[in-house]
Design a protein around this nucleic acid. Sequence first.
DNA 1: AAAGACACCTGTCCGC
DNA 2: TGCGGACAGGTGTCTT
Length: 270
Amino acid sequence: MPELPEVETTLRGISAHVLNTPITRITIRNPKLRWPVPDELASLLQQQITKITRRAKYLLLSTDKGTIIIHLGMSGSLRIVDSGTTYDKHDHVEFCFANGNALRLKDPRRFGAVLWTNESIDEHPLLSHLGPEPLSDEFNSELLFALSRNKTVAIKQFIMNSKIVVGIGNIYANEALFASGINPKRAVGKISKKRYEQLCIEIKRILEKAISQGGTTLKDFVGGTGKPGYFKQELLVYGRKGLPCMQCKSPLKEIRQGNRSTVYCTHCQT
DNA sequence: AAAGACACCTGTCCGC
DNA sequence: TGCGGACAGGTGTCTT
């Protein structure tokens, strides 16, 4: 589920419900996530979450005694429920708060993670080698152009590489390349500055649009039944293999790159 | 050094 | 309707 817009939407949806209220209980129902959920989380009892930020797709919940790092993996979601609400089969970790709210991580595939660190967050091994945020000014065509000279890697894998830029998952890589008219297989060293300018514009535009739409379903993060918003109706290539291109009507092609599906238009993307 | 394969896990969908 | 197999929004790590 979670691409960057959903992680950002999650951050916005949960913040008000868990900030500045003491953590009264931490329940680890299943510690077997991507990495074992550390027992040291217990040191956060009675601490308050003072701020929540996001770096790439990691959510960072700050307290005076360290930071909780949460990643949603492929199938994870965070939800606010009343403390005491019946658990779902896949609710693995729960933080209860003095205000009566509980923050629950549900993750059927368990590719997600809940970690804790005491140290400077930028020095954490998972975060220290990450490229810039896609919505920051630091992510721009000059950067992509400079990093791509004399390289042969395919553009799709390049923009999905978190050392180059973070937060661009499979859906938005496909969509941004279609919007930019760039063939996903094109070698990065053979892409002009001009085309990188367009690509950066489209990446930012699409991510921002998705975030703004996610924002319309914030209420769904509270309570038991809602699902995070999705934007299937906005997607022009992802999941549309064989269907007509929205621009030229020729059937979209699917290939695999780095074990991920790529859908594109052989006419419009060159 | 860089590219590719693989690992982690459950749920869902498709074809027979 | 049932069943096996492919595949899924991520990403760190191991192998070429």
